[in-house]
């Protein structure tokens, strides 16, 4: 294994049970409400098609969202990769959302501002609550098998 970089969120989709607890706790942690539309991640669930896919911010090496921001409202700490949205500098133009190749970034339906993942300040609750191990916070992606 190569030298560990900063910890990141990893998704192992075939472990996901579709419970969406990650969506719930994310909005509670950040906003004190449950509302999947305001979570900083989303699980795409279709029982009929048997798809259970968490879509999370991957703390990309080259963050297209930050590059795309015209007002420099989005930034991050390069050591921890914790993202920060300076709300006063953001006019909700949506360029960051368009730029995310994983469609992990979405607007808050109330404010229109991007719901940027800040890794809960370094201890992301989505991973903390995912007992199935579908979302893991680690430097390296864990092996697939449990």
């Amino acid at each position: 294994m190569s030298a560990a970089g900063p910890k990141r969120l990893h998704v192992i989709a075939d472990r996901c049970t579709g419970c969406r607890l990650c969506e719930a706790v994310c909005a509670v942690r950040h906003l004190g409400v449950t509302n999947p539309e305001k979570a900083r991640l989303q699980v795409q669930v279709s029982e009929d098609d048997n798809t259970f896919t968490p879509v999370v911010c991957r703390q990309c090496k080259k963050p297209r969202c930050i590059e795309a921001c015209p007002g420099q409202a989005l930034s991050r700490d390069e050591n921890t990769r914790i993202m920060h949205l300076e709300e006063s500098a953001c006019d909700g133009c949506g360029k960051c959302i368009e730029a995310c190749p994983f469609r992990a970034l979405r607007p808050d339906p109330g404010t229109g501002l991007p719901l940027a993942c800040d890794l809960c300040g370094g201890d992301p609750c989505c991973a903390e609550f995912c007992d199935a191990g579908a979302i893991v916070f680690a430097a390296a992606r864990p092996g697939k098998s449990r």
């Binding site: 472990r15 049970t17 419970c19 969406r20 607890l21 719930a24 029982e47 259970f52 007992d131 199935a132």
Partner: peptide, 12 residues
């Protein structure tokens, strides 16, 4: 194939 859960459940 694998297991599924209701909303919020870790017992799946």
């Amino acid at each position: 194939q694998s297991m599924a859960a209701c909303f919020g459940c870790q017992v799946h």
